[in-house]
Write a protein that binds this DNA or RNA. Structure first.
Lengths: 159, 159
DNA sequence: AATTTGATGGTCAAAGATGGTCAATTTTCT
DNA sequence: AGAAAATTGACCATCTTTGACCATCAAATT
């Protein structure tokens, strides 16, 4: 198994339903996994970004730490935030996929639904002779259309 | 015997009745057969396409892999029909939505999933300054991408 | 109070590990 | 011979891991 995946799992195991937050020591964790300390940063940078629904806070020097917070918000508010702040008029496939992953992790959509959404925004679909800016604009429109649909649904179910 | 046939056999032997899925390392396999790594891609591209009833998933970089999924006979037949006959290279929003409705009626997708799919192909998303032919081509690509993803989840088998 | 020191975490670029593409060449089939 | 299939290799793209060097903070020392 990949080191980075192992570290990701380790951290996510600490962030259970109750625990919205976890604090760790970079060097300790690196030692535990027998790797370079910067490997920890790599994992945080690729799997615990705001795009993924996490916020990082850290401090250097003696008694330093890294704290990871999982963002929690009301479902519909979150969706509105995602819609207006994050998608906007244009979005890359990577950003879009991160956003979908987040919806899945937050259990706003099922994993099957997430797979469908990713299929609809993945770069491969857009390999047609059109400018990249147009691709991202179209992707944004499609993603927003889907998000609206989900928001509409959750308004009538629960959450 | 041809190399490509040998590799094809090798992979198909791994995909027995029980095993619906196999994971391999491109370079390892190439080394085993003492051939160029790209030969593996050739075999996959010519003998393990959706048309042949397979779905491929891969990842690059350290710990990379290639996974091959075998679809049920029913699944691949229905998928082929949808992909080639119904969707094709271009599809209107009306046709697309009709197709999605049918998938839902046949309980191949849930109504939530159908709603997401419709949101992704609806005409509104595509109201940008691009030719109608491009819109329909893009819509076709997106719909196909989604259909492949659904086949991947083997949802066809129980309808 | 200012400085030094040790303990932390951060950055970034390079190296390593994979898989992907494409076009040229060779082999096989008709 | 000509067309189709197979094979290879050069070059590309992506993801991971590491290490050298930098920045910051708190406590000890001057």
């Amino acid at each position: 198994m990949r080191l980075s995946d192992a570290i990701e799992q380790f951290i996510k195991t600490m962030l259970t339903q109750d625990e919205q937050e976890v604090e760790l020591k970079r060097n300790e964790l690196a030692q535990y996994f027998n790797c370079a300390p910067s490997q920890i940063n790599y994992v945080l940078a690729t799997r615990f970004t705001p795009d993924h629904g996490y916020i990082i806070e850290s401090r250097r020097g003696g008694g330093g730490y890294i704290r990871i917070f999982r963002m929690e918000q009301d479902t519909s508010e979150q969706l509105l935030y995602l819609l207006h702040e994050r998608v906007g008029e244009t979005i890359s496939s990577l950003e879009a996929e991160h956003l979908v992953s987040q919806l899945k992790e937050r259990e706003i959509v099922t994993s099957d639904e997430a797979a469908i959404m990713k299929a609809a925004v993945c770069e491969n679909c857009y390999t047609l002779p059109i400018p990249a800016t147009l691709k991202d604009a179209l992707r944004a429109r499609i993603l927003k259309s889907i998000l609206l649909e989900i928001a509409h649904k959750s308004k009538f179910s629960d959450a």
